[in-house]
Design a protein around this nucleic acid. Structure first.
Lengths: 120, 120
DNA sequence: ATCAACCTTAGACTATACTCTACTGTTGCT
DNA sequence: AGCAACAGTAGAGTATAGTCTAAGGTTGAT
């Protein structure tokens, strides 16, 4: 797949895909046998990663954190133990986010009550 | 209270408090009777707002969104109906965030399983 | 051969949310 | 009066995450 096809599949612009590539989140391959151009080719795993990136971004993970998770899953550079550590760390931060959201929900519900009862 | 006291109470730097003031989230009052200086004075409500700002930021609300919520609660410029609309809107976005987090949790748990079972 | 529609790179630009610096003035203690 | 510790403003600088432009090369259909 060339970049435009990946872009269409994921809804992420080619610009942004290149930005993610520069950031080390994904990696295209150049076809060595073709010498006339230097187009990058992407596989289905890349599409999968990009979908994960979108989801992870919307829950508030940074590019760096997302990179760690991708490495923990797709990469050989960590030991099993290290991978599990990274993933557990991210799970903990999700738990933390959940707690904060529940708190915030309570707070806003309180605001609402105050509005309804003209206490503000 | 002067700015440093507010900073100590909230753990937010004086710089950042001034930034929030410029952004319209809080508002200090100048003492008209004192002419030798132009120090801002802050009340307990401001401290309350700043604590809310910290919490709201950590669940991912932007300055603009936080400003809306503060206005919906402390300000006279919206009708009751408008206030409730704003607050409901934020509650919905919290629900959305929760859903996304639960999804992400599932995904990471799947990653973990794959790591444990050497599927990656 | 030409032309639209692709591809690449380098680098400039934007928005958000700070964070810091420089400079100046005020307060309160000794 | 001197001085540390505080206050204010303007504006520059930083980090993150894109977003866009310019300039050039390639592909594929006509």
């Amino acid at each position: 797949m060339l970049i435009n096809e990946v872009s269409k599949k994921t809804g992420i612009s080619a610009h942004t895909i290149r930005f993610y590539e520069k950031s080390g989140l994904i990696e295209g391959k150049r076809n060595e046998s073709v010498k006339s151009n230097n187009y990058y080719h992407y596989d289905d795993i890349t599409v999968e990663k990009l979908e994960f990136i979108s989801d992870a971004k919307s829950v508030g993970f940074t590019i760096r954190e997302i990179g760690q998770m991708i490495d923990a899953w797709y990469n050989k550079k960590y030991s099993k133990k290290q991978k599990l550590e990274i993933l557990d760390d991210k799970l903990n931060s999700l738990e933390q986010k959940m707690k904060e959201i529940r708190q915030m929900k309570k707070q806003i519900l309180q605001f609402k009550e105050d509005v309804v009862n003209d206490r503000c």
